[in-house]
Amino acid sequence: MNRARLATVWLDGCSGCHMSFLDMDERLIALAERADLVYSPLVDSKEFPEGVDITLVEGAVSTDEDIEKIRHIRGRTKLLVSLGDCAVTSNVPAMRNPFPVVQVMERAYVENADIRQGVEFTGVLPRLLDRVRPVHEVVPVDVFVPGCPPPADAIHYVLDALLDGRQPDLTGQTRFGR
């Protein structure tokens, strides 16, 4: 049997979706028999490889680097899955959206900073976008799995369906928020 090539990525999120992924517990073993995890914050691979079947994306698109990354990934992935509220709705990262970036930076690095007050743009760190956006506003997304985080059962259900070649129906499986 052909083993599927699975990847997970972490954009602007809290890693809670990845934790929930790990909460699949013993089902991970069964999953490992059906798919190879070829790229993930959970494994040590530097390059996003070509020919990936399924990529789970956690997190919203917040920086210029995120845009570049997700476009690159989209180009190498058959099925892109927005995993969790940050990817699906932009969620908590987007709470800064009603405010200008400069104001956000001032609040974080000047007003509330105890040491080394000041905003520096050194070019080393990625620049924040004016607005945080859900993944599907940047690249086409095939499956949406809301939840903060989505329960392990829902993630398992989705992966199971996708590996079987079915389109998952998430009605009643998960929801925004909890």
């Binding site: 927005s82 509220d85 699906v88 709705t89 932009s90 969620n91 908590v92 987007a94 709470m95 959206n97 859900p134 599907h136 506003e137 997304v141 949406f144 799995v145 809301p146 903060c148 129906d169 998430l170 009605t171 009643g172 998960t174 929801r175 925004f176 928020g177 909890r178």
Partner: peptide, 30 residues
Amino acid sequence: HVCAVCVSNGHCELQDLAEEVGMTHVRVPY
């Protein structure tokens, strides 16, 4: 509507309805 940090998370009719009608994402810009 940031459900994850809302005091009504889990007790919200808007949230419930989204689940009920299978609205998994918002296609129009926020």
